[in-house]
């Protein structure tokens, strides 16, 4: 019986994904059909309507994400194909991602602090621009709440993938290098996935930015925490 419901959850998730992806491609990449946000919203709505809790869905999630690690490793390939661009623009890439990661940490933590959120929530939201393993590692060092940090990471990733492409076009970024770096810096793997849908160069740069943003965020955390204490 349990296997049957498990199978049903997975089949349902795959079905919703396939449908939303179809609509997205059909609508010529209309950002309204953002695959992650729309699919997750549909699934959450159905789960809530049927009185199914997140814990019951969890085993299905674990099965579906078994291949997430190996799939992410595949980013090594576009990175390798763009190694020439990477060497040429190394300084530019490092500078942009460092600036972006710093700005993301500061703006998030400052708004949270000014808004009167408790210290542990501020420390959790500070690291939200990096992939979950990084975020959990860093937030734990400064008194944040790891599961909450993971939730912020996912929220940021979902938001970034929802508006990222549209917003970059609005502010006049046409350059594939810039688009990829921005998406990867702000929305880690979720932004990278969106960048990959735009093109291979964007995807490669986003993957690289995601890696660098994780490293920079870890490095910048001590000074950012220090400044936040001064401002509080």
């Amino acid at each position: 019986m349990q296997q049957l419901t498990l199978f049903f959850y997975i089949a349902f998730t795959l079905g919703v994904y396939a449908l939303v992806r179809f609509l997205y491609v059909r609508s010529k990449n209309n950002p309204l059909f953002n695959i992650v946000a729309v699919s997750a919203a549909i699934i959450i709505a159905v789960l809530l309507a049927c009185g199914i809790t997140c814990e019951q869905y969890e085993p299905a999630k674990d099965i579906m994400t078994i291949l997430l690690g190996p799939a992410t490793v595949g980013l090594g390939l576009p990175l390798y194909r763009y190694r020439k661009l990477l060497r040429q623009q190394a300084g530019c890439i490092a500078m942009c991602v460092a600036g972006g990661a710093l700005l993301a940490m500061f703006s998030a933590a400052l708004i949270a602090q000014w808004g009167g959120l408790p210290h542990d929530v501020v420390m959790s939201i500070m690291v939200k621009g990096v992939s979950i393993p990084f975020a959990i590692e860093i937030t734990g060092m400064y008194g944040g709440i790891p599961p909450l940090a993971a939730a912020f990471v996912v929220a940021t990733g979902t938001f970034g993938s929802l508006v990222g492409s549209w917003f970059l076009t609005r502010v006049g970024v046409a350059n594939p290098l810039g688009r990829g770096l921005a998406l990867g810096t702000v929305s880690h793997a979720q932004g990278t996935a969106v960048a990959l849908m735009e093109g291979e160069e964007q995807g490669a740069m986003a993957g690289l930015a995601m890696i660098l943003a994780g490293i920079f965020t870890a490095a910048f955390a001590p000074p950012v925490v220090w400044v936040l204490q001064l401002l509080s």
Partner: peptide, 26 residues
Amino acid sequence: WVLLAAIVVSALLPLALVGRLAQYLQ
């Protein structure tokens, strides 16, 4: 609202910064 503001602002600002800066530098 605070969380929403924090997430939205801290996503849009760096998106614009990184995108524009990389484009300019290249």
